[in-house]
């Protein structure tokens, strides 16, 4: 629809929309996060849902304990290798469309604990992450910003065409393989379909 006509109509009191916009508006205005705290960042996540920061302003205050009812997984804290299979399994249990926010340095890359033997070096080794929030821990404002970024991302999703989001495509993986406990490390150490090591060319004298 022509933008000029649309704004003209809205001046006349006629509101027009498209099915896609309506659908995305509904989805982005009621993102239900999974009630899922791993470590320090979870406290800031709780603080974000409390009176001062009030995540309810963005329609995301309904923290669901069950993955079956959640749209958004906020990976709030250090993912250890012992916890990683459970995180992937919980994500698999969430219904599509689903999104992941990696909150804090630990969830992004292992953060300060990167050199630990039991620390997963970033949840993006197993899951596709939509928004990363840096910080240790990120302030609640940063989480709100991440939520707004995610809302923009949802609003920009096209339901048809080649750029469809994963949940509208048949070829995208519906489940992600759950890593197994091995004798020394997780098996596999990362999901090659989701993540490959960054390519670095070293030139050294």
């Amino acid at each position: 629809m022509d933008e000029g006509l649309r704004s003209e109509l809205s001046k006349q009191g006629v509101f027009t929309t498209t099915l896609e916009e309506l659908y995305n508006w509904g989805r982005r205005s009621s993102v239900w996060p999974l009630n899922f705290g791993l470590a320090c960042c979870a406290i800031e996540m709780i603080a974000a849902s409390m009176a001062r920061f009030d995540i309810a302003r963005f329609g995301a205050e309904v923290f669901r304990p069950s993955p079956r009812q959640a749209d958004l997984m906020i990976v709030a804290g250090t993912v250890t290798k012992k916890m990683a299979p459970q995180v992937v399994r919980l994500f698999n249990q969430m219904p599509e469309p689903k999104y992941v926010i990696a909150m804090g340095a630990c969830a992004i890359s292992g953060g300060p604990f990167k050199q630990g033997y039991n620390v997963l070096k970033g949840i993006d080794r197993y899951l596709p992450v939509d928004v990363h929030i840096p910080g240790c821990p990120p302030r609640p404002e940063a989480l709100l910003h991440a939520l707004m970024t995610l809302q923009q991302k949802i609003a920009a999703q096209r339901l048809t065409g080649p750029e469809r989001p994963p949940h509208a495509r048949d070829d995208a993986p519906a489940e992600f393989p759950v890593p197994q406990y091995g004798p020394y490390d997780l098996n596999p150490p990362h999901n090659p379909e989701v993540w490959q090591p960054a390519a670095v060319v070293r030139d050294e004298a």
Binding site: C40, G77, P112, F113, Y117, V119
Partner: peptide
């Protein structure tokens, strides 16, 4: 063990002062 972040091992590899931020966590 689901949040075993190897604080002690990391602290044995860094200097005394560098462990201070880890104690916060």
């Amino acid at each position: 063990g689901y949040l075993h972040r190897n604080h002690e091992k990391i602290a044995e590899r860094t200097t005394y002062l560098a462990s201070m931020p880890y104690t916060d966590r």
